[in-house]
């Protein structure tokens, strides 16, 4: 699965991917508290809330910054 953000693209290896329609999701803004783990910001910028279940939504910029911090390039 490839995530694009501006000039950068990052690929993720996943065991399983499910495509969901926008109407199946209730995505709300979410800002993790505290200092972001990277200078590119937090890893997440939204959340899918289904009752009491929460699935955090990755922020591509934050994720790419995090991966770069691990020594990777994008």
């Amino acid at each position: 699965m490839f995530l694009g953000t501006g000039s950068s693209v990052v690929g993720l290896v996943a065991d399983d991917v499910r495509l969901l329609g926008r109407t199946d999701l209730h995505v709300v803004p979410f800002t993790p508290l505290g200092t972001p783990p990277t200078r590119f910001g937090h890893l997440f910028n939204a959340a899918w809330v289904d009752g009491q279940r929460v699935t955090l939504v990755l922020d591509p910029n934050g994720l790419i910054g995090f991966l770069r911090g691990l020594g990777g390039t994008a």
Binding site: V28, P32, L33, P37, V49, V54
Partner: peptide, 19 residues
């Protein structure tokens, strides 16, 4: 849990359709 968060952020709960 919230990966990458400080230790004092214990996690996130789903409450009234908000995280």
């Amino acid at each position: 849990p919230v990966p990458g968060a400080p230790a004092w952020l214990l996690g996130v709960i789903g409450w009234r359709a908000q995280a």
